[in-house]
């Protein structure tokens, strides 16, 4: 079954006319992107900053409205989901931000942060929320005592675990991860990646995993798409794409990765 289907997605930021400031020509962030992700698999999307991968991610969760093209999540058009209100969309697809600390409200406890999706998306009754919050914390390897703490009391890795718990809380089966480990130390990265793999296996999740780090994508992805200049320039199984890149941009990307031998 196809979990995510994107057809000819175009996003153009319009030209900005200004009275005094310098005018800006229109910017094409996405120039006709098409991709499909089978349910229960991970699609890795790699590319440099500015290649449009974050715009694509934000289109997928409805934070950015595409100029043209269609997105289907589990067979249902995203436009319909979005029209039905933020709740229908949030139940179908969730998003994990790059910087976990800034994606949590500094003035809310973790309990309050988890309560929002449980209440508005999953429709969990107030009495059952506490038990569900504890379950979620356990699922991401955190303690139930952490529920009463504030975001600034956590390290980056812990905060990202909490952000993942919040994405799980909605019960969505498709999760868009926008550079989820780029802000973390390498050892912490490995732990978070392992957690993501566990959760995927346990809950049958579908991931769109966006990263500029080829090795990370190779480790987690079943298929990989390479983006450059708002287009997908190469797509395939990670071992093939990285072992024998055909597009010059992919070749440059692969050559730049630090190696332990040679």
């Amino acid at each position: 079954m196809t979990a995510v289907e994107v057809r000819d997605l175009v996003k153009t930021y319009p030209a900005r006319r200004a009275l005094f400031a310098r005018a800006r020509p229109p910017v094409a962030a996405l120039k006709g992107v098409s991709l499909t992700v089978e349910a229960g698999t991970t699609l890795g999307i790699v590319g440099e900053s500015g290649c449009g991968k974050s715009t694509l991610a934000r289109c997928l969760v409805g934070l950015v409205r595409p100029t043209s093209g269609t997105i289907r999540i589990e067979g249902r058009p995203l436009a319909d989901l979005a029209a039905a209100g933020p709740r229908a969309l949030g139940r179908a697809v969730q998003y994990v931000f790059q910087d976990p600390v800034s994606s949590l409200n500094p003035r809310k406890t973790i309990r309050q942060a988890l309560a929002a999706p449980l209440r508005f998306l999953a429709g969990v009754a107030p009495a059952a929320r506490e038990a569900r919050s504890r379950e979620l914390m356990q699922a991401v390897g955190m303690e139930a005592e952490h529920l009463d703490r504030f975001p600034h009391e956590f390290s980056g890795g812990q905060a990202q675990r909490i952000a993942i718990a919040r994405a799980l809380a909605a019960g969505a089966r498709v999760i868009v991860l926008d550079e989820p480990v780029s802000a973390l130390d390498l050892t912490v990265q490995a732990q978070v990646l392992r957690l993501l793999a566990d959760l995927k296996a346990r809950h049958g999740l579908t991931y769109l995993f966006i990263s500029h780090d080829l090795a990370v994508v190779e480790a987690v992805a079943d298929r990989v798409a390479v983006m450059s200049g708002g287009e997908i320039v190469e797509e395939g199984a990670p071992a093939e794409v990285f072992a024998a890149p055909t597009h010059p941009y992919t070749q440059r990307l692969v050559a730049a990765v630090p190696r332990m031998t040679g």
């Binding site: 949030g90 931000f97 910087d99 800034s102 994606s103 929002a116």
Partner: peptide, 10 residues
Amino acid sequence: DFVEAARLSG
């Protein structure tokens, strides 16, 4: 980010 996260929380 946290405002957008709230939006995504419904």
